[in-house]
Simulated assay, not measured.
Amino acid sequence: MDNYTNYAHAELGLWLYQMKKPPSFTGRITHGIQSKINDWIPEKVHLAITTAIENMVKAVISGSSWIVPKPHESLSLKQREFKVRNRIKWYRNTASVEGAVTGAGGILLGFADFPAFLTIKMKMLFDIAALYGFDTKNYQERLFLLYIFQISFSTQSRRNDLIGLLENWESYRHDLPEDLGAFDWRTFQLDYRDYIDLAKLAQLVPIIGAGVGAIANYRLTEHLGKNAMNAYRLRILK
């Protein structure tokens, strides 16, 4: 095992520890408050938001106009991850600019940030999958992307639940939903919305929104990229 592979194993071990640690007291309190707020929201609103997010994500990952990256083969782990880090950097900077532009417009352009930022993050995951040698034309690989997305933007309790699925993907993949319509979109949108709301609420405020949007998108994209790297390491380093 070369030095870089040892380094990757060490990073993966630290990431697994972070995914499996119990929720903090603050995290439990915050989640409780968010759950209460969600209980107050009418069911019709939840259904509308769930449908909107489901349709947006499906359009990104299943649309006929989507150009699926070709899997990269015959690369060492070090070469793959050099390319992956560069792609994350590119998407991180792109998302930061997008957040600054939409944040500068206050609440109106702030709403436009939601689908734009979602598309940037999903496209990054497709590129990362290809760089690690996985073919996202395969339906199960697209589901894997959704679980990476969900574990990145969810509570610590949800991460505790999902990390076992990612660790044992080859065992779980055959029991997963047969199509995207059977995916748990309600939980997906609640986790994502609660996580993003805390990070990006101030982006809707004129003047300061540009700075908040740029920083939030930068950090959230980097966070997703790091999780994607380690999720694929789980499969490659085994």
Score class of each variant (00 low, 15 high):
W185N: 10
V45P: 14
M19Y: 03
K200R: 10
L176W: 01
T155E: 11
V101T: 12
R173A: 11
L77V: 01
M229K: 05
K58D: 15
S35I: 00
F183V: 02
S35E: 15
Y4I: 03
T187D: 12
H46A: 06
A129S: 10
A199V: 06
I207N: 08
G164T: 01
V205S: 03
E73I: 02
H72D: 14
L198N: 15
D191H: 04
V45F: 06
I236F: 00
L224R: 00
T26C: 04
Q18S: 04
I196L: 13
T187H: 07
G181I: 04
M56Y: 02
L204P: 05
A182N: 13
N227E: 08
R85P: 04
S64K: 08
K89N: 12
K121H: 09
F117Q: 05
D113K: 09
L237H: 00
F117W: 04
A231E: 03
L165S: 02
D191Q: 09
F126S: 11
V60F: 02
T51K: 10
F188I: 03
D179C: 11
L131G: 05
L237F: 01
R158D: 09
N38V: 04
S64P: 01
F153W: 12
M124E: 03
I151L: 07
I37G: 12
F114H: 00
L146C: 11
I29D: 08
R186F: 02
W169M: 07
N227F: 00
A59V: 00
G105W: 00
A59M: 08
E73S: 13
N217F: 00
L146G: 08
I41T: 07
G181E: 15
D39F: 09
E98H: 03
S65M: 13
R159D: 11
Q34V: 01
I107Q: 13
V84Y: 05
R159T: 07
D179S: 14
D127P: 06
H9K: 14
G225K: 04
F188S: 08
G133T: 02
G27K: 02
S64C: 00
E11A: 06
S76L: 14
I236H: 04
I196H: 09
D161T: 13
G181D: 15
F188Q: 13
N160I: 01
K226V: 12
E73Y: 03
E11N: 11
D2L: 10
M56D: 10
L176N: 04
Q18E: 10
R233I: 00
Y192V: 12
I53E: 11
L77N: 07
L176Y: 02
N230S: 03
F134E: 14
A129W: 01
E11W: 00
K58A: 09
D179M: 09
N3M: 12
E73D: 15
E73K: 14
A10Q: 11
R85Q: 12
G209Q: 06
L47C: 11
I67T: 08
K226R: 10
I208Y: 05
Q189P: 13
R28H: 01
S35H: 10
G133W: 03
R85D: 12
